[in-house]
Amino acid sequence: MGRDDAWEPERIEEGDGESRGDRSTSVASLASPSSPPTAPWLVWLIGPLFVALGAWFVTASPLPEIPLGTPASVPPGSLNPVPFARPGADLPEVVIGGYDHRCNECHRFFDSPPIERRTLTQHTDIELEHGLNNRCFNCHDVRNRELLVLYDGTRLSFDQVPRLCAQCHGTVYRDWQRGTHGKTLGSWDAESGRQRRLGCNDCHNPHAPAYPPFRPLPAPDTLRMGNQSIAHAHGARHEPLRRWSSDGAGHGGSVRHDRTGDHADPNAPLGGKEHP
């Protein structure tokens, strides 16, 4: 009985609360499970829903997983700093019968007609595609094949190729001297002493100097730069964070490195790479 007495004032207060609750929204009364007038079926609906939702949140992975494919990498050797490194570029040698020979070991015995064009019986691997400059002895010395020759008869060694090219390509030579044409390796600081300026024939084949076409490395397949037009082509909606492979298989495709065909020698431009 004492208990009832103790809670007597409480009842009055609750009554006040109840009347305030009536004026407020019904949601507030729904939220309080101790208020009898709420519809119990709603609680029975929402309670298990919360439980199921919570269980799903806990058991399921909390964050959406982005599917992983094969890591992107480039074929080894495709990032060589010297585009067409040619061993022994300064030292003309030829391998005959398994032995290295200097050019003049033979050529001091054989004369060549200096001006006429003729079909070569040797050096048939050389394809001369240098525009109007289509005579061997425009650049090679007719007497000493281990030297080059300028138009005025000055002889040059093979490490002085830029001077030879400068006879015709004056503007490019000027740019090369300034460093605005060609490639410098080692350091950006000229005073460091570590700079190495590549010469003309480090990048250009002197017999066919036009730059050969290259196989490009794969297009970006990054999350935001992936090819969305492929997704559109397959009727999918725009999803910038999802990768699409071109076969329309959807996300998670790996990077294809063979889309340009043979990558056995990835650095190889198509034709004209081999220096004689």
Binding site: V43, G47, V51, G54
Partner: peptide, 15 residues
């Protein structure tokens, strides 16, 4: 009813 509400609340907190 209270048990269901409490369980729901605890699960939501855990989530």
């Amino acid at each position: 009813r209270n048990s269901v509400a409490a369980a729901g609340g605890i699960t939501a907190l855990a989530a």
